[in-house]
Design a protein around this nucleic acid. Structure first.
Length: 450
RNA sequence: GUGGUUGUAGCUCAGUUGGUUAGAGCGCUGGAUUGUGGUUCCAGAGGUCGCGGGUUCAAAUCCCGUCUUCCACCCCA
């Protein structure tokens, strides 16, 4: 059998795992500093938990898990006959793989509400699965790092998320643009343009503005049965400056619009003295897809690598409503680790120190030295120095080649002479420098160099 | 899900209008060099040509199907 991987998935070799862990650690550190606590939820959820939460498009992208046992015995044969896949699925699959971390979190909050104190701030770092067609930066399995707070509608959290985003990407050394918008600003725009009932197709079209320009957007809008007068009004709203003040004036007649603008102004006000390192921008064309966002929405894009958004998020007024717990406002963000990984990889911006935790390789020249080196190995490890010994003595060239190939920073050579003198030849592979050092001196040397 | 694209050695890729035994570079193994890797030289190993079917005297090459890759759309991290 020829080994292969399901499409849209990938293996992580040691180097990639170290690098991914570095991203996790950076994000986790910031999450914890801001007072978020970790939870984990199962890879599988009941299908009814997931269905209907992500819109029709989302439902199509859910991985369904086939029921165990003789699933055909209980299958809806009528649906099978009529080739009605949706109806058939219900009879042969009751579970699915999680599509994101937000909906499982909502389910978690409702189930654990009596043991939680609100507002509850949690973070979660786990893989999610989407049956999407793969492309660059688009996988069927990928990790998300989510932070959400539920049980408060305070806008300090929106501001806090901007600070967290700013800190994480600055620490990772990625130049990004943090885009901020508000669902009610979009509603206000739709209302002002006289198409309050067509807000969703409007936002879908407007979202593509920088990609397809006004002619493209206008033709999309026409396809959505939006009248020419409304399209003209939208165009004048979006022409010229996109500043918050400009929009604020334009939406003066809309309750939604005023509310959205006011909230955004509050968030910017909280951030006034924050001294952000990354670019933060109000972007009235931003329209995050997920149907449950109701307030502020976030998106982050790399300024240097074109790979789609590397973070998304927003506020949802009633996420737990579907699980019978109404009026719980939540807001959260989600880092797309696979894409962040690809950005760092492309820019070659992983710090060298994340790659090589095995610090030293012992090389012995004959059987006696090899036996001796095994004890020395133990001494090094007891000093918390990650070390390993080439499995057999002999051929120096072969062992050195192994050291080179595995990118181990240091090599210690042990021959009969070294063994007698209890002083060893230590070589720094990168520079080629070598020294004759006692055990104590080695510990010191390995500490100061890498 | 729609349209396109890609697949030949471990990696990157050649391979003519269909025609003997499918090539190169890098890497790998051994040697030159029995206490020194990344340089050089020599030798060697390594291939169901993605998979399945069809056309043909003959298929890596043409046709169909399928899987995979990447791209555009849809949507998204």
């Amino acid at each position: 059998m020829k080994p292969s991987l399901p499409k849209g998935t990938r293996d992580y070799s040691p180097k990639e795992v170290y690098r991914q862990n570095y991203i996790f650690a950076t994000i986790r550190q910031v999450f914890e500093k801001f007072g978020y606590q970790p939870i984990e939820t199962p890879a599988m959820e009941n299908l009814e938990t997931l269905l209907g939460k992500y819109g029709d498009e989302g439902d199509k992208l859910l991985f369904k898990v086939l029921n165990n046992g003789d699933y055909l015995a209980k299958a809806d044969l009528e649906a099978l006959q009529e080739k009605d896949s949706n109806r058939l699925v219900k009879s042969i699959s009751k579970r699915g793989l999680r599509y994101d971390l937000t909906v499982p979190f909502a389910r978690y909050v409702v189930m654990h509400q009596h043991e939680l104190s609100f507002p509850f701030k949690r973070y979660q770092i786990q893989p999610v699965w989407r049956a999407d067609r793969p492309q660059k930066g688009r996988y069927q399995e990928f990790y998300q790092c989510d932070a959400d707070v539920i049980g408060s509608d305070s806008l300090i959290y929106e501001a806090e998320y901007v600070l967290m985003i700013d800190e994480v990407f600055t620490k990772l050394g990625i130049d990004v643009e943090i885009k901020l918008n508000h669902r009610q600003v979009l509603a206000g725009i739709a209302e002002t343009a006289g198409i309050a009932d067509k807000m969703v197709p409007m936002t879908v079209a407007i979202d593509k503005l920088d990609k397809i320009g006004w002619t493209g957007v206008a033709s999309e809008l026409r396809k959505a049965d939006i009248e020419a007068a409304s399209i003209d009004r939208l165009q004048s709203l979006y022409s010229g400056q996109h500043g918050l003040d400009h929009i604020s004036e334009a939406l003066d007649q809309s309750d939604d619009g005023r509310k959205g603008v006011e909230e955004l102004k509050r968030v910017f006000d909280y951030l006034e003295s924050a001294n952000l390192k990354q670019e933060l921008k109000f972007d009235p064309t931003l329209a995050r897809g997920l149907s449950y966002y109701t307030g502020c929405i976030f998106e982050v894009k790399s300024k240097e690598v074109s790979i789609g958004s590397i973070l998304g998020g927003g506020r949802y007024a009633n996420l737990t409503g579907a699980f019978g717990m109404p009026d719980m406002s939540g807001v959260g963000i989600s880092f797309g680790v696979a894409r962040i990984f690809d950005v760092l990889q492309e820019l070659d911006r992983f710090p060298g120190s994340v790659d090589h935790p095995i610090k030293v390789l012992l090389i012995a020249l004959d059987e006696d030295c090899h036996r001796y080196a095994f004890d020395l190995l133990h001494d090094l490890r007891s000093q918390e120095i990650p070390a390993h010994l080439y499995p057999e003595p002999g051929k120096l060239k072969k062992q050195m080649k192994y050291a080179d190939a595995t990118e181990v920073p240091f090599v210690i050579l042990i021959g009969s002479d070294e063994m007698k003198r209890k002083s060893y030849t230590v070589k720094h592979m990168k520079s080629g420098e070598q020294w004759d050092l006692s055990f104590e001196a080695i510990i010191e040397k390995l500490g100061e160099l890498r």
